[in-house]
Design a protein around this nucleic acid. Sequence first.
DNA 1: CGTGTAAGGAATTCTGACACG
DNA 2: CGTGTAAGGAATTCTGACACG
Lengths: 108, 108
Amino acid sequence: MTEDEKSYKTKKVITIGIVSELTGLSERQIRYYEERQLIFPDRSQRGTRKYSFGDVETLMDIANQMEDGVRTFEIRQEMKKKPDEEKLKRSMIKGQLNARFGIQNKFK
Amino acid sequence: MTEDEKSYKTKKVITIGIVSELTGLSERQIRYYEERQLIFPDRSQRGTRKYSFGDVETLMDIANQMEDGVRTFEIRQEMKKKPDEEKLKRSMIKGQLNARFGIQNKFK
DNA sequence: CGTGTAAGGAATTCTGACACG
DNA sequence: CGTGTAAGGAATTCTGACACG
């Protein structure tokens, strides 16, 4: 990924109306998740919220968890552990490795 | 580049006010370049213009050319020849190959 | 707890036009 | 030709609150 492509994902340039269209969430929900510290938009000079594509992805992930009955408090807890998808993937692989080799270690 | 990263560059989600901040161009200028067929934003249901990061880059390129005294008509002509940077790069490489091997071919 | 809604204000965007040149 | 500006309307966004639960 080039520097430009990286900034495309993290640069906060999308207004709440478009984020609402993109995620299917109401503006009320999006603002509430911010209040609960699950998402952190920038503000334009005047005060309008601005989101990145990364924020949009986070919101879609939040939406899925809410559907499963997870509460905002719990989602925030998880966010602290897994700041991003990459880390999640790595930890999942690590988990598999532990499950596979952890037992063998007993025979060491 | 993943599919997601690709869409980050081409997905039209940025409003004209933010494009103005990003490019340093006035909204008047941005709308005028559209009128001159140099840029093609999408429209929201209500009619608001929406731009992609790719559009923002194109606009910055246009800004540079305007500074050099190039007119919108001429810029449009160039755009037809080089639809995007990738194609430009490929054609430049091809040009080098021709310059290097085109002559040798005479000895074949 | 999570989300809908009505409320009023402030900022945004849109179009067509006049201006200068 | 390229861009600034004033004009009026329509849609957007913001906050704090009441509601249900």
